[in-house]
Design a protein around this nucleic acid. Structure first.
Lengths: 227, 227
DNA sequence: CGGCACGTTGAGTGCCCTCAATGCCGGTGG
DNA sequence: CCACCGGCATTGAGGGCACTCAACGTGCCG
């Protein structure tokens, strides 16, 4: 069953697939569609569902009291988002490219209610998340600006790139500010790194949101920078 | 390299409580004691157990191919370490202060085998870990050197500090190199921050491994640095 | 056309890194 | 006992990378 999300302002979408459903107690899994610009959940919301992204892109963010923002991660197809801390979400989740989700009840993760196999997959995803975040520690703490941007492009091209002749077309639905807050850089530095990669012939910038990777090997070298 | 190795060679401690035990199949939970300098598990080891720290301190590290090292976290009493990625550990775990653990079978987390309540607690700890790591993202990406060091001291003093008159005595079993690799700084910068805090009268450095917090409010201010 | 959001580019500064020297402490051997 | 050494921490001098501040270009929308 599909729940199409509207063009109205953001709302606690997490609650939608459950409320008022006659099959509520049996609804461990639902499919959900959501337009760009909407917020799937906010920090502090009660976490009723965990979402697997079928298509589209989401952005997980967290804000410090002084206003500094951190983009925790970008959710790409295949990713799970919404793992709770206690019974609450600990970040905001905004849709930045029209997305479809499979929504799982939180109890499917916590108690295996509904389906043992689903429980196993959710748990596995949560543990993988921990490992992936550790990789990102390296990124934030030990890589130069160019390495960060190159690594970012590399991952994105590997996960969502589309063959385009000898090149790989990559869409960047997020803004430069999002990328900067993800990598721990400023907007200007991110922009300068893109320009440098363009000047070096590694990438082509058709529009700021549309990149083609011309030299994947060079990109990989820039991302590692063993020197 | 960084850390002095113990009087005996490191060993796969994780396997100790299981091997040769006649009660092996029933052993979902065991207590374990381990001296400083030993390694509880290595990256790539099969993750048979998950450990809750009863006392002592451990260090989780990961190494990049080019040699750059990242300290993922320090495990303090109450913390869980050893959450697997698939069936493998994804970091090294070394004991840096004599420690006691409760070892849980990985199956206790994955299938709830043994005890439902244990399963719930392990899962809860894994989810909390995700949330805690997100906080550390902020730390690595958006805080200045002084904020990082002050935050680090603050957390440590809150978790392991011992009242000492009006002051709070904190033990730092880890080296400056460990702290630097945890915070994404260099040894020298960490040292300079400690010295600055000392000059400002915020802390007293009895020895490099033994700190007293004189002015907790000032430390908190330094950690937030809203300016 | 003006206003705005976003991205790019330039100039200058500052924070933290690099490199280097020194001090301290424990272990070891003369 | 002292000399020597290696590991660790501290401190200083200098430089570079990324930040800050600012200007400009572009596309979108009223």
């Amino acid at each position: 069953m599909y729940v199409t999300l509207p063009t109205e302002p953001a709302f606690p979408a997490a609650s939608l697939p459950m409320r008022g459903s006659p099959k509520r107690r049996a609804a461990f899994q639902r499919t959900l569609r959501c337009a760009e610009g909407h917020t799937l959940f906010y920090e502090g919301d009660e976490a009723e569902m965990i979402y697997q992204i079928k298509s589209g892109v989401v952005r997980l963010t967290r804000v410090l009291e002084n206003g500094r923002r951190q983009v925790i991660s970008f959710g790409l197809p295949g990713d799970f988002v919404g793992f709770p801390d206690g019974d609450r979400h600990h970040s905001d989740c905004e849709i930045i490219a029209p997305a479809e989700f499979i929504a799982h009840s939180r109890r499917a993760l916590e108690s295996g209610e509904g389906n043992v196999e689903t429980h196993r997959r959710l748990l596995h995803a949560a543990l993988q998340e921990i490992s992936a975040m550790q990789d990102h520690f390296m990124m934030l703490a030990r890589k130069s600006a160019m390495e960060k941007v190159a690594s970012f492009l590399l991952v994105l091209s590997q996960r969502t790139g589309i063959g385009f002749g000898a090149q790989l077309a990559v869409s960047l639905p997020m803004s430069r500010a999002d990328i900067a807050d993800f990598l721990g850089l400023t907007i200007e530095t991110v922009s300068r790194c893109f320009s440098q990669l363009r000047k070096d012939g590694v990438i082509v910038l058709d529009t700021p949101q549309s990149v083609r990777v011309r030299d994947a090997a060079a990109l990989r070298r820039a991302a590692l920078s063993t020197e």
